Structures are given as structure tokens and as C-alpha cells.
Amino acid sequence: MGGMSPRTTSPCPCGRALGYAECCGRLHSGKGAAASPEELMRSRYAAFAVEDEAYLLRTWHPRTRPTRIGFEAGGSMRWVGLEILDSSEGSAFHSTGTVTFRARYVEGGRPGALHERSRFERLDGAWVYVDGDVYE
């Protein structure tokens, strides 16, 4: 994990009312797996917030996965909030799903947001991120 490792009792960066260890931390450590695309989306957002490159690469579909994430040492970007706007499919009966979200960040003291409709697929039974459409 990167330099922003939360304490196990810290609130989870994904915004749920649970501590990091019982929420996304258990997925990051491999003690659990995301049960839906939305849960995977939340855990990937939290992984960006704590700079957990290994988890992000592990949960990225091999056909679209980059070789590395490339977090900047001492970088000026901080993820500060996640809002799930919509989700479709992604139940136990689906092999694909989408999640539309807005993730807020602060970079160099300026606020910004990433608005994306992400696509997920099941790969060997586990949900993985495929790609997404970014909205302006």
C-alpha cells in the first residue's frame, strides 16, 4: 500500500458507514471479494485513495489492464468523496454490469471531479473492471 494507509478503525474512503478494515480493507487484503460491480467500484475508489496499486491491478481485466498505475511519490492529488449515481445489471445472475459514479478530488489545492460510467465483467467468477466512459 502507498503512503496513505488508513488505520483499521478509520472510516472507509468509499463513503460507507463502516471502518476501513471491515469494508474495503478486507477486499484489499484478499480476505473477501466484491459481490457486485458497485462493491468493486467502491473498493477500487478506496484503493486509489490509499494508493493500493496491487489491488487495482488485480481487479482490472487482463485485456485492458495497464502495466502499472503510476502513483506519484508525494503526489498532490487526494481523493475526497465518492457518489454512486447509477448501476445496472451486476446481480448474481449477470456476467456484466455498469456503475456510473462521480469521484471528487483535490489536486494542487484545486477541487475537481471524475464522472465515469464504468463497465465490469465476471472473470473466473470474480468481478473485474474493464473500462469506462468519462463524462465532462
Results as ranks from 00 to 15, higher is better:
Met1Ile: 15
Met1Pro: 11
Gly2Trp: 02
Gly3Pro: 14
Gly3Arg: 04
Met4Tyr: 13
Pro6His: 05
Arg7Phe: 12
Arg7Trp: 03
Arg7Lys: 02
Thr8Cys: 08
Ser10Tyr: 09
Pro11Gln: 01
Pro11His: 14
Cys12Thr: 07
Pro13Asp: 05
Pro13His: 02
Cys14Thr: 10
Gly15Arg: 08
Arg16Gly: 05
Ala17His: 10
Leu18Val: 02
Gly19Ile: 06
Gly19Val: 05
Tyr20Val: 13
Tyr20Ser: 00
Tyr20Arg: 08
Ala21Gln: 13
Glu22His: 12
Glu22Cys: 09
Cys24Glu: 13
Cys24His: 11
His28Gln: 02
His28Val: 04
His28Cys: 03
His28Arg: 01
Ser29Glu: 13
Gly30Pro: 04
Gly30Met: 04
Lys31Asp: 15
Ala33Cys: 07
Ala34His: 05
Pro37Ser: 10
Glu38Lys: 02
Met41Pro: 07
Arg42Phe: 12
Arg42Met: 14
Arg44Ile: 10
Arg44Ser: 00
Arg44Gly: 03
Arg44Pro: 03
Tyr45Ile: 04
Tyr45Leu: 01
Ala46Thr: 10
Ala46Met: 08
Asp52Gln: 03
Asp52Lys: 03
Glu53Asp: 04
Ala54His: 08
Ala54Arg: 03
Tyr55Pro: 05
Leu56Gly: 01
Leu56Glu: 08
Leu57Gln: 15
Thr59Pro: 00
Trp60Lys: 08
His61Gln: 08
His61Ser: 04
Thr64Ala: 10
Pro66Ile: 11
Pro66Glu: 02
Pro66Trp: 01
Thr67Pro: 11
Thr67Gln: 14
Arg68Tyr: 00
Arg68Gly: 13
Ile69Tyr: 06
Ile69Gln: 13
Gly70Lys: 01
Phe71Asn: 05
Glu72Ser: 12
Glu72Ala: 14
Glu72Asp: 06
Ala73Leu: 12
Gly74Met: 09
Gly74Phe: 08
Gly74Cys: 12
Gly74Trp: 14
Gly74Asp: 08
Gly74Thr: 06
Gly74Ile: 02
Trp79Glu: 12
Trp79Gln: 12
Val80Cys: 13
Leu82Lys: 06
Glu83Val: 12
Glu83Arg: 15
Ile84Pro: 11
Asp86Tyr: 14
Asp86Arg: 14
Ser87Arg: 15
Ser88Val: 06
Glu89Phe: 09
Glu89Asn: 09
Gly90Pro: 03
Ala92Thr: 01
Ala92Trp: 03
Phe93Arg: 15
His94Met: 00
Thr96Trp: 01
Thr96Asn: 03
Thr98Gly: 04
Thr100Lys: 06
Phe101His: 07
Phe101Ile: 05
Phe101Asn: 07
Arg102Leu: 12
Tyr105Ser: 11
Glu107Gly: 03
Gly108Leu: 12
Gly108Phe: 13
Gly108Asp: 15
Gly108Arg: 09
Gly109Asp: 07
Pro111Ile: 00
Pro111Asp: 02
Gly112Asp: 01
Gly112Glu: 05
Leu114Tyr: 00
His115Ala: 15
His115Ile: 15
His115Thr: 13
Glu116Asn: 09
Glu116Tyr: 09
Glu116Gln: 15
Arg117Phe: 07
Arg117Met: 05
Ser118Ala: 10
Phe120Gln: 04
Leu123Glu: 05
Leu123Trp: 11
Leu123Ala: 12
Gly125Lys: 06
Ala126Trp: 04
Val128Asn: 02
Val128Arg: 08
Gly132His: 02
Gly132Thr: 09
Gly132Glu: 09
Asp133Leu: 04
Val134Asp: 06
Tyr135Gln: 11
Tyr135His: 13
